[in-house]
Design a binder for these strands. Structure first.
Lengths: 210, 210, 210, 210
DNA sequence: TATGAATGAGACTTCATTCAT
DNA sequence: AATGAATGAAGTCTCATTCAT
């Protein structure tokens, strides 16, 4: 009669599980409605735990949203990696493709993050700080990759190129959000990759000219 | 006809003035905190008029925010116009410069608009619709201008180019918002203009190649 | 058909009336249960106005309790006045009688005030400050009166005498609260008056002896 | 018998220690914020034990506060004892000194107790009852002592004198709480002792006069 | 052309307490 | 001898909005 079911330690394990359920619910709502639009009552209803239980797992709403950002940033970082072969232009295009797909796969991170970035309420939310930190990390990773693909740029030029690369991605993401029928995101990211490559080439030629 | 006192128009004028004060306050707050973060009480405190007076001038909160968008869009449209001379590349650069400066001068329109665009709350707000309409108008104007500057593109290519142009502008605006010290917006818009021009040239050469 | 009923401007007048109703309810509850025990819901139920209406009249709970203190202090001050004739001892006794009766008539001020005075929560409540200020005013008034009745005391002695006078009153009030059947407050205040007078005489004789 | 390890008593000892830590934390908080202001969460944070552990040691919040009163009353009683020699006036003064010092040494008992005594919430708390019982015990002890020091008073006079003695002590304690810089508690208790003695003498002479 | 007063709903958060482990 | 997790009730306060004047 070997009892294979082991309901022991359920509560202990359920703690982590509950936390995850709360984060799932909060992610979904926050991506839809932003910081202020995400009410604890809404999250509570969606994850089917009383509001007071949410406060067992998170200090307050800010803490909760920050945890949402943290978790979704991790999964976003996992989603893209540098392609290893082909010409420089092809590899830049390949990278852009990765990012485009990551954006389409898990848009919550960017959507919520951009909303937080745009908000400027007097008391800086921890959640906002967390997004900006995540974005800085992205910029560092991108700098490394582009440095390898298009060597010879000055530090300033590199920084500008990375800023422009990220800006284009953000902007295209928004364009897709505003009217997802009119925009072929993959196609547009391809155009962005080409533009980036052309820009790099132009900058290099300027360096040579001087 | 020397009667300088005009008590008849007095009330009307005061009314307009109050309306303007409300819009000023609402603009500032909405640009800082988004739709949900803009409470009537906050607006009331900032413009020093009772909340009930706001409801005399505007049907409800949605109507107020929509009016904010409407007014700031008008001033934004007024701020840029196509430069008339020079080479095509120079004129694209000139246009980019206009837009960059308009963004720096009255950033509220874009900031609030982007926030609204990113939000996806179930019931579409009139304010969001108004921003998207304003943006469509911008796209139309941009299409006209770019058609003139880089003729020969197919309609699809043109639409893509305009989408990319706007996306870049949005993205650079956000980059500037996130860290306004690290980004020289004018410089970056110049880079964007060059990238746009290069893209147009590439597309044209592809057309010729086919 | 001269209509003598004038329901006009009712709402405007009701504002003051509502404020008074709220203060009445809050006074009663706060005197019974102290600062923390006075919940807005309780006050709301007792004055039959929704909680949100209380916030129209008072900024927050602290503001409300402070207003309670303020109002009850005013009525308390009105309740006692210095008796004008008789020997010094008789006049001190007469004054004590006034205060004893004032305490019995409107005990809320003292009860709530003492509770606030005893509390030492980190963030000082405005209500507590208000009580302490009221009490200082009482001390000043008492100093004037006693100076006239028992002249010749040094400033330090006077201050001590006043402190002792108030302390005795506070203590007797508490004794009456703890067990109002065992204590005849009037009788006890008479004893207090005699003790005060004896103390003054003793101090004066010490002064003379030096 | 050289076994120095005693794991059997270990749990018991730890338990007592936890209980003590909880009581320490609760005492401090309750003396600062009163009954309602003392939340289990606050106590839990201060003693660094989970809230559920507090409920292992105490039935509920009321039980906890009652235990606080009980413990602090014991230490308070331990702190004063009747001086054995000198004139009656000197011995009364000596006793007053003891009490003044006990008040300064462990003020928590009185502060919390007075707060409870002043509160009149509908459902009598066990904690309040415990304080009143403690206070009755003090009155009995004081009656014994004063009977010995000033014999010849009627029972009623004695009860009044004891009531007045305690009232003065309470009042002076409060004066010291409200503004501890302006009040020299030792000096004031000396004044109180003299006043008590004078009162006793006056009462005795009245008895003789009748 | 306003506005003082009010209000029900809902915001975030803490409360005292329980229970399975 | 504890404790992680949960929970319904209640806490203070703000919300958008209405209405009589």
């Amino acid at each position: 009669m070997a009892n294979t079911v082991q309901p022991k330690r359920r509560k202990r394990v359920d703690g982590e599980l509950s936390r995850e359920r709360i984060l799932d619910a909060a992610s979904e709502i926050a991506a839809e409605r932003g910081y202020e639009g995400t009410s604890i009552a809404l999250v509570s209803a969606k994850c089917d735990l009383p509001a007071s239980s949410i406060y067992w797992h998170f200090k307050n709403k800010d803490d909760l949203i920050a945890a949402v950002i943290e978790r979704s940033f991790a999964s976003w970082l996992r989603a893209w990696e540098v392609p290893g072969d082909g010409t420089a232009r092809e590899r830049v295009q390949g990278l852009a493709m990765q990012i485009a797909k990551a954006l389409l796969d898990s848009p919550d991170f960017i959507r919520l993050g951009l909303m937080l970035a745009l908000e400027r309420r007097p008391i800086e939310a921890r959640a906002r700080a967390m997004f900006i930190q995540a974005r800085t990390q992205t910029a560092v990773a991108l700098t490394e990759t582009l440095s390898e693909l298009t060597p010879g740029l000055t530090e300033t030029q590199m920084r500008q190129l990375v800023t422009y690369a990220i800006a284009g991605a953000d902007g295209l993401f928004i364009a897709n959000e505003v009217d997802d029928q009119a925009v072929d995101l993959i196609e547009m990211f391809n155009m962005h990759a080409n533009a980036l490559y052309s820009t790099a080439v132009r900058l290099l030629s300027e360096n040579a000219g001087q």
